[in-house]
Amino acid sequence: MAEKRDIIRLRKRFALRFGVDEPVRMAFTEDISPEGLFIKTTNICPPGTKIKIILTISNDQILHLEGRVMWAKKVPPQMIHIVKKCGMGVRITRFINGEEIYQNLCNELMAR
């Protein structure tokens, strides 16, 4: 199936925590874009859910943001390394801190 979006997604793995009330679940990004990110996890939230995210770019760059789950695909934990897309596509709705750092990172990755 062909990609329907015009958004350029950049393959990048960052550690993060996410959750509805508090960001307590650990996961990783698989790709990012200026508008959102894909969280690889078996602990999905239903589409439409608002989540809080703490994204660790480096030891001294920790970003806090909020997003909305746009789609989710759940697979059993033992299949996470086999299935291509297991997790959630999240649209960023608000940066609490670090918006400039995130946008600069996306621009740097696109320039490569």
Rank of each mutant, 00 (worst) to 15 (best):
W71D: 00
E35Y: 03
A111N: 12
M70K: 12
R94P: 01
T41W: 04
I96G: 00
S33L: 09
P23Q: 10
I44P: 03
C106S: 12
E30H: 12
G87M: 11
E30L: 09
I8T: 13
D21Q: 06
P76Y: 13
Y102T: 00
I101K: 12
M88R: 07
R68F: 03
W71H: 06
I8S: 10
V90I: 15
M79F: 11
P77F: 11
K52P: 08
E35Q: 10
I82L: 14
A2D: 07
K73G: 07
K74F: 15
K50Q: 04
E100F: 11
N107V: 12
P34A: 02
L65V: 02
I57F: 13
D6Y: 07
G36A: 05
V75L: 06
M1L: 10
F28C: 02
F28T: 02
I44F: 09
C106M: 12
I62Y: 05
R11N: 02
I54Q: 11
D6S: 12
R94M: 08
W71K: 06
L55G: 00
K52S: 08
R17Y: 13
N104Y: 05
C106V: 10
I7Y: 09
D60M: 14
W71E: 00
K12S: 04
F38G: 03
L16Y: 05
G48Q: 13
R68W: 04
E35F: 07
K12M: 10
F38C: 00
I53V: 12
E99F: 12
K50P: 14
A72R: 07
K12H: 06
T93Y: 08
S58E: 13
V20Q: 13
G48A: 12
M70D: 00
N104F: 01
R91S: 08
M70T: 11
N107P: 08
L109S: 04
D31K: 02
H64D: 06
L10G: 11
E66T: 01
T29M: 14
G87V: 11
G98A: 00
M1Q: 05
K40G: 01
A2I: 09
L37A: 00
I51G: 00
E108T: 10
